[in-house]
Design a protein around this nucleic acid. Structure first.
Lengths: 153, 153
DNA sequence: GTCGATGCAAACGATTTGCAGTGGA
DNA sequence: TCCACTGCAAATCGTTTGCATCGAC
């Protein structure tokens, strides 16, 4: 199982990197494995990822973590988010449908949402202004159910 | 005209600041004047604002510009935006209806939009997840009409 | 007179970069 | 072999902060 996933990743990565004269190095392999084996919808910062990798026998430098993350964002393997916490957060996008986020301003919890009607309206809005959309960022900030009830208590 | 605006600002500011034991100092006055006299929908960085103020007889320190901007954001007099340009941008919100933004990824031009249906749907989404919304950020990135035609040429 | 506000310069912190050495293809 | 990649440390850069002084109320 693990073995399959790993070799799948390698093949996938090699393919995606190869046509741009990019090499599949050990650090990239280790980073990609860690990211792709994370559970869906998990958001992590570059530093958090680095911390996780540091514990592994073969550590990876922080600079390489940043460089590789930027590479993976470019390759659409991960997505970059700014939740207003002063640092960027990342999320794997392989085999994940597009979605946007609800963010709790009190505890930081993040919930995903997707709404076809909003997606459609965005296209309408863009068309009206003559824009050709390439991507969007839609974040709703507020208090999550847990924090709301805690506050009432 | 100018005189009226100025005293109006002073009164307004004094009012808004007073109940929190905040003082209406000269730097705050100068900064507020500059911001409120800017044309609607103008986006500026802290540094740009500071540059403008520097030319004035009475300069203001950059630290104070930052501190005052944060104060004005808190007081809902200006709004803070992150357009992914590596620095924060501000926009006066006094006498301005809520709106979101279309951002050109090529030239950086910003166009406003507002859509009641999307606003409504956001509330529906929040309700479904049990969130109580306090604010949101909705940004559409793409190529503006100008850049699209330039690219075709 | 008080205490909040200011200016200055130093501190911060996430991210990037220069460079010499390393290792995929 | 060749050139992209890596690790390390230093550099960046927008923003914040410590502290002595200043000034609004």
């Amino acid at each position: 199982m693990k073995k399959d996933l790993t070799s799948e990743i390698k093949t996938e990565l090699k393919e995606r990197l190869h046509d741009k004269d990019l090499k599949l190095t050990h650090p990239r392999e280790v980073i990609a494995e860690k990211i792709l084996s994370a559970k869906a919808g998990e958001h992590f910062s570059a530093d958090e990822l680095w911390e996780k990798l540091r514990k592994t026998a073969k550590g990876v430098s922080k600079a390489t973590v940043y460089r590789t993350l930027n590479l993976l964002v470019e390759k659409k393997i991960v997505e970059e988010h700014d939740f207003g916490k002063g640092q960027k957060y990342y999320e794997r996008m392989v085999e994940r449908p597009h979605h946007d986020h609800l963010i709790c301003v009190q505890c930081g919890r993040i919930v995903e949402f997707e709404n076809a009607e909003i997606e459609r309206l965005q296209e309408v809005i863009a068309r009206e202004s003559g824009f050709k959309l390439s991507y969007h960022s839609h974040k709703l900030f507020g208090a999550c159910p847990r924090c709301r009830s805690r506050r009432q208590a």
